[in-house]
Design a protein around this nucleic acid. Sequence first.
DNA 1: GTGGTCTAGACCACG
DNA 2: GTGGTCTAGACCACT
Lengths: 136, 136, 136, 136
Amino acid sequence: MIQIVTGDPRPVFRQIVDEVRRKIASGELAAGARLPSVRALAMQLTVNPNTVAKAYAELTAEGLAEARRGVGLFVLEPSRDRLSVAERQRRLDEAMRQFVDSIVGLDFDIDEILARLEAELAPFTPSASGRRRPLT
Amino acid sequence: MIQIVTGDPRPVFRQIVDEVRRKIASGELAAGARLPSVRALAMQLTVNPNTVAKAYAELTAEGLAEARRGVGLFVLEPSRDRLSVAERQRRLDEAMRQFVDSIVGLDFDIDEILARLEAELAPFTPSASGRRRPLT
Amino acid sequence: MIQIVTGDPRPVFRQIVDEVRRKIASGELAAGARLPSVRALAMQLTVNPNTVAKAYAELTAEGLAEARRGVGLFVLEPSRDRLSVAERQRRLDEAMRQFVDSIVGLDFDIDEILARLEAELAPFTPSASGRRRPLT
Amino acid sequence: MIQIVTGDPRPVFRQIVDEVRRKIASGELAAGARLPSVRALAMQLTVNPNTVAKAYAELTAEGLAEARRGVGLFVLEPSRDRLSVAERQRRLDEAMRQFVDSIVGLDFDIDEILARLEAELAPFTPSASGRRRPLT
DNA sequence: GTGGTCTAGACCACG
DNA sequence: GTGGTCTAGACCACT
């Protein structure tokens, strides 16, 4: 269900966080869904339970999941207003800067990049994610 | 000429590399241009000379610049095949993944993101840089 | 400078976070101030460095401090708009509920409680904290 | 009658204790009133009976209620000296500290907080509860 | 069984 | 030297 790659530059706990966040955003993990237990996921990924726990703690801190002691970790309803508009903008700016820095000088065609990005973002478009009900 | 920001998540040497790469890609630094000496730049940025040296080493390793002992670092002619097709593709994939992970769940409109990205990439479009042939 | 109490119901890392947050809010720790290193504070408190590191990670995540690799952890300028209005309200509601639950049935006089609270909050009042410059 | 919220940071048994204590303090549950049986409440809340039993045990230990075997839990007469002065003071101090820690840095106006708190505490003022003598 | 916390000790990237 | 990450193993609170 969740996979980690040893060659990945990201630390393991971050890979887990990113993967879960993606699954939630794409609707693959719906609100109320239960994540694998810390120990179970640690076993499956053959990493230390603490590493998984750290990832889960971050998901909790981000407001994406909630821990029910003695029960497990559950995906929360998406609440879009946790961060201020300014903070969200700041994060987009930062991500944008980082992306441009990474591909600058790689000689790719802008239209090609835009097309690819559009395709990659498609799964997270509101209508596709199932996270929001149409107002009817 | 180059600025570093303490609050930036990137290490200092990376900020230097990114900034120089940007300037080269945008044409601001043309082939043959001379970068400040390690010591001079370190002084100006008030960072450790080792840090600047590390950045320059990376620029050299990337094939973007060349060190002439005792003189300074010089921007090289852009060579199309500096990186293999596979390597370029790999970097684009990685940058793409990282960008998507960063903005997933921030609830921005795709079109808005695409428009912004197009604007940010404009300065690096081949025809604008003046030092590259359009792909035609 | 920072003290932890073994009898405290809060975990150690939380005590550290709370203490630092208080010092920042009261102006005792001004923006730009450097916090003790992870190892130094761990030594002083005779706790595991990881525990301090966890506290520092939370301060960083909260946007109160920033880590400069190889240098140390520094207090950031207060940026009041990181959380949305709704989120801040939510947190106040929760704190309020918890406080009322804790003192209900303790038979204290309301006015007495209000007076004490006012006194306790005084050090964090904007004018006292020194965090904001008068507009003059 | 009693509701538990899964998203609540408090453990379930604590939510039950708090809710009952509130109802007693506000006079909604008068002395002599009977609380549902452990099994009945567990069923209604769909929680583990052990959890309800733990909550009831705490209410008993606090001197707020009394168990009559096979019958249920009954609210006791309020006894002024249930807790020592020192203990009451200790609890107020702790609650105060926790409250201040929670809202520090949230940048609310003190007067706003005091006003809200006064409103929230109103239902528990001695004259309103009906079961306590005013302090005169 | 669940998640949360802590200790001990290690290695890495950065300056 | 700095902070960041990971492993290993332990204990606790809660259900």
